[in-house]
Computed example of a mutant assay.
Amino acid sequence: MSTYRSTHQAVGSDTDRSPSGLATGIRPAVGGIPFLRLCAVELRKQLDTRAGLWLLVAIALVNTGFIALTFFTADAASLTWTSLAESASLGQLLLLPLIGVMAATSEWSARTALSTFTLEPRRTRVNLAKLVSAGSLGLIVMVVTLLVSAALNLAGILWQGADGSWALNWGLVGGTALALVLLVWQGVAFGLAFLSTPVAIVAYLGLPTLWTVLTLTIESLRGPAEWLDVNTTLSVLMTGAMTADDWPRLAVSLVVWLGVPLAFGLWRTARREP
């Protein structure tokens, strides 16, 4: 009995002296995960998965192919930094938003939502980190594309006697970069709305395309399409020739094709069991 009492007193005294406060049953206050750290983790998730890595490889190959095609087929007078950068935009505009889709659906398809939302219970905060990291990845790809285009522009000057103008069309480059970020966010929004990678990809690629086809075939839809067809409004943005009338049209189309699925996705993921 004396041995039990001495052991009990020793344990009790050690527990009472513990700074964590376990003896009183009160857990210490734990600070939230910094938002920038969340963004870094989400960015790493987009690059660590096999699907994300191979999709980036595919984007790099497609961009390289388009730039090389322009480099070897365009005449010397039209070979400039802007023309080379513009030629690579199609591949990344088409494929990079799919990384946004997978960034949103990976928590549910890979069944990591339980661990993620246990470490950070504020799900909307996690989803906002996905938006920031996916948009940052789009900008990184855009910068790499500009650097590769600059290297080939220099090669054109040295080897082909090309015009090689270094005067970038900043309206075109800025519009393309903004369109890329918006499309990546649209991919994240569709991923959050459907929470299934194949369904979200089909919806992201199919629904806006179907609407565009309908507006081309049904004359009565052509007027509303100027405000509701995101493909049309983003095409104007990528030309770098936006006017005062074009910005409201872009905003309305983004509310429909980005704002609505994103709001539904944030609401759905906040209430779904992991």
Rank of each mutant, 00 (worst) to 15 (best):
T3R: 14
Y4Q: 12
R5K: 12
H8I: 10
Q9D: 05
V11R: 01
G12Q: 14
G12H: 13
D16Q: 10
S18Y: 07
S18P: 02
S20L: 13
G21T: 05
A23H: 08
T24H: 12
R27Y: 09
F35A: 00
A40G: 06
E42G: 01
R44Y: 09
R44V: 02
D48L: 12
D48T: 05
R50P: 00
W54S: 13
I59G: 10
A60Q: 09
V62T: 03
G65I: 04
A68C: 08
T70Y: 13
T70M: 15
F71R: 15
F71Y: 15
A77L: 15
S78V: 03
T80K: 14
S83R: 15
S83C: 07
S87N: 13
A88I: 06
S89I: 04
S89K: 08
L93H: 10
L94G: 02
L95V: 03
L96Y: 06
L98W: 00
A103S: 15
W108Q: 09
T112K: 01
P121S: 08
T124K: 08
V126F: 07
A129G: 13
K130V: 09
L131T: 02
V132I: 05
A134Y: 06
L139A: 12
L139K: 14
M142V: 04
M142Y: 14
T145H: 10
T145N: 15
L146G: 01
L152G: 04
L154M: 12
Q160P: 07
Q160L: 15
G164D: 09
S165P: 04
W170P: 13
W170R: 14
W170Q: 12
L172A: 09
V173Q: 10
A179L: 14
Q186H: 11
Q186L: 08
A189M: 12
A189R: 09
G191Y: 04
T197W: 09
P198D: 07
V202P: 01
A203W: 11
A203D: 10
Y204M: 15
P208L: 03
P208C: 03
T209N: 05
L216S: 08
L216W: 09
R222V: 02
R222T: 01
R222I: 04
G223V: 05
A225V: 01
A225D: 03
A225Q: 03
A225S: 06
E226N: 14
W227H: 01
L228R: 10
L228D: 08
D229L: 11
N231H: 10
T233Q: 13
S235C: 09
V236T: 05
V236F: 06
L237F: 12
M238Q: 11
G240T: 02
T243Q: 11
A244N: 01
A251T: 02
S253V: 05
S253H: 07
W257L: 15
L258P: 02
G259R: 12
P261R: 13
P261F: 07
W267Y: 15
R268Q: 15
R271Y: 02
P274G: 00
